[in-house]
Simulated scan of single mutants.
Amino acid sequence: MHRNSYSLAALAAAAVPGMVPARTMPIATPAEDLDVAGILGEDGRRVMVLSPASTAAGVRLERDLKVADALTGTSLRGVIPPVLGFVKLTEGGRCAVTEAPVGRPLMLEDLSGSEALARSLGQVLARIHTVPRYAAEAAGVESFTSQVLHAEHRARVAALTEAGHLPAAVAQRWQALLEDEELWDFTPQFVHGDLSEESLFLSGDQVSAVRDWSSSKVADAASDLAWLISSLDPDRFDALCAAYREELPTSAHPRLMERAQALGEFAVAEWLAHGLEVEDPEIVADARGMIADLDADLAQLARDEAERTYEEMSAREDDRA
């Protein structure tokens, strides 16, 4: 069942000894069945309450907290708010209360306006991707090989192509990417798995907190970068990547960013496949619109390449004359 901010404040008071709520503030979450609120206590303490509204949400919350707990012994401990207490819910499951993340939710506009913030996010991403295997295993996350992940992308693109859902240029581009074996020859790493504006907080020009670890796994590091490469302007993304590489203890995969670009495009294929599966016309239309935009971009690139080739040929003809 869903709970409003006042009910969540009461849960916070029950979970944290001495907590007397004075004010509440709703906090956005990517999950519709998870109620979240920030609570300010009379003594100035700030906490966050997370209450699942369904059994599935309860399972995700428990997974999130288990991963977060395992990460408190790593270099990420400074961006993971500690758990302060739990309360059993009458309908089953439990709600959790954590320290409130320092700062405020991060917006893409913040990254676009601050190179320092982009670099901070790059550093945090590098720390995520270098979480030791023992910590990932302690968290009980799933682990995938590069071969399995590659095969999943192949199968999805092949199914959409065979069903006639992809323009020829898009299908050819994606097939060429998937046939590039070197691009997909990588070592899986720990990843957040669902990074978004809702999962990040900032304070000044620094990423101050990362939450919602329920989708974490050992998989492709490029998956945590894909949404950023398609959302940030090139200069900001380059700054993020530079900080990311500097923070890594070893060299990144030489084609990591190229694979992130590919995954950003494949996310559209996944969105279309999901829309077709659940028979949601709005999702299907949205995905097809994005695919049409990519098709138009590829057509423009082909025209630009043809013009450059023509100009080079003309220049060579002039030189011979």
Results as ranks from 00 to 15, higher is better:
Leu272Met: 05
Arg173Asp: 13
Leu294Ser: 09
Val284Met: 06
Val218Asp: 09
Met25Val: 09
Leu84Pro: 08
Gln123Leu: 10
Ala15Ile: 03
Ala273Phe: 02
Asp185Pro: 01
Val47Phe: 12
Glu182Gln: 13
Thr145Leu: 04
Asp235Ser: 11
Leu272Gln: 05
Phe144Gln: 13
Val16Gly: 12
Arg154Asp: 10
Glu197Gln: 11
Asp212Cys: 03
Arg320Glu: 13
Gly264Lys: 10
Gly78Gln: 10
Ser75Ile: 08
Ala57Asp: 00
Arg236Cys: 02
Glu265Ile: 03
Asp318His: 14
Leu84Asp: 00
Pro105Ser: 12
Thr130Phe: 01
Glu115Phe: 09
Gly264Glu: 07
Asp69Glu: 12
Asp235Ile: 11
Ile39Ser: 05
Ala219Asn: 13
Glu312Gln: 15
Pro167Phe: 03
Ala273Met: 05
Leu11Thr: 01
Ala53Gly: 15
Asp194Arg: 10
Thr74Tyr: 01
Ala269Met: 09
Ala287Ser: 07
Glu142Ala: 11
Glu307Met: 14
Ile229Lys: 12
Leu84Trp: 03
Leu34Cys: 08
His253Ala: 12
Leu121Thr: 03
Ser314Trp: 13
Leu106Ala: 04
Ser196Pro: 02
Asp304Leu: 11
His192Trp: 04
Pro26Thr: 11
Ala96Pro: 00
Ala221Ile: 05
Met313Asp: 15
Arg63Phe: 04
Ser146Gly: 14
Ala151Tyr: 02
Glu265His: 08
